[in-house]
Simulated scan of single mutants.
Amino acid sequence: MPRLWDISPTVSSEAPIFPGDEPYSLRWTARVSPDCPVNLSAITMSPHVGAHADAPLHYGNDEPSAAEVDLNAYLGPCRVIHAIDCGPLIRIEHLHHAAANLPPRVLVRCCKQADTAWNPDFTAYAPETVAWLAAQGVQLIGLDTPSVDPASSKLLPSHQQLLRLKLRVLENLVLDEVPEGDYELIALPLKLAGACASPVRAVLREL
Rank of each mutant, 00 (worst) to 15 (best):
N61L: 09
G20T: 03
K112A: 13
A100P: 00
P47C: 13
I81R: 01
V49L: 01
P120H: 13
S65H: 03
R79M: 01
L95I: 08
L71F: 10
P64W: 10
E68Q: 13
L102T: 10
I84N: 04
L26E: 14
R79S: 05
C111Y: 00
A42D: 06
M45V: 01
Y74H: 12
A67W: 03
A117F: 12
R109N: 01
P88F: 05
D121T: 05
A30N: 02
D62K: 09
G50F: 00
H96G: 00
T29H: 03
R91Q: 15
V38D: 02
C86H: 06
S25Y: 02
Q113S: 14
T116Q: 14
I43W: 00
S13H: 13
V38E: 04
G20S: 03
E93I: 00
P37T: 11
L102D: 10
V108E: 06
S46P: 02
V32C: 13
A126L: 09
A66S: 15
I84V: 15
S46M: 01
L71V: 10
L57P: 05
P120C: 13
V130K: 15
A83G: 04
P77K: 06
R105K: 12
A51C: 15
L40K: 09
L40T: 09
C110Q: 11
T29Y: 01
C111G: 00
L133Q: 05
P9W: 12
H48P: 00
T44Q: 14
P34T: 07
P9G: 11
N72M: 07
H48D: 05
C86I: 05
P120L: 14
I17C: 04
M45Y: 06
L95F: 07
S8Y: 05
L57W: 00
V130D: 08
A98Q: 06
V32T: 14
Y74Q: 05
D62P: 00
A100Q: 06
K112H: 15
H82F: 07
E63K: 15
N61V: 10
T123Q: 04
E128T: 12
Y125R: 03
W132K: 04
P56C: 06
P37D: 14
A51I: 11
V11Q: 00
Y74W: 13
E63S: 05
S46R: 01
L89W: 14
H94S: 08
E68D: 10
A124G: 11
T29K: 08
P127Y: 06
D70E: 15
R91S: 14
L95A: 07
D21A: 07
I90Y: 12
C111S: 09
P47N: 12
A124C: 12
P127D: 03
C86T: 06
S65Y: 02
L71E: 14
L107F: 02
A66C: 09
F18R: 15
D54Q: 11
A53H: 12
D121H: 11
P19H: 04
H52N: 07
H48W: 00
G60Y: 01
N72F: 05
N72E: 15
P47L: 09
S33K: 11
L95Q: 12
G87R: 04
A55S: 15
D85G: 11
P37R: 13
P77R: 10
V130R: 14
R79V: 03
A98I: 04
D54I: 09
C86G: 06
P127K: 08
I81E: 02
A98C: 04
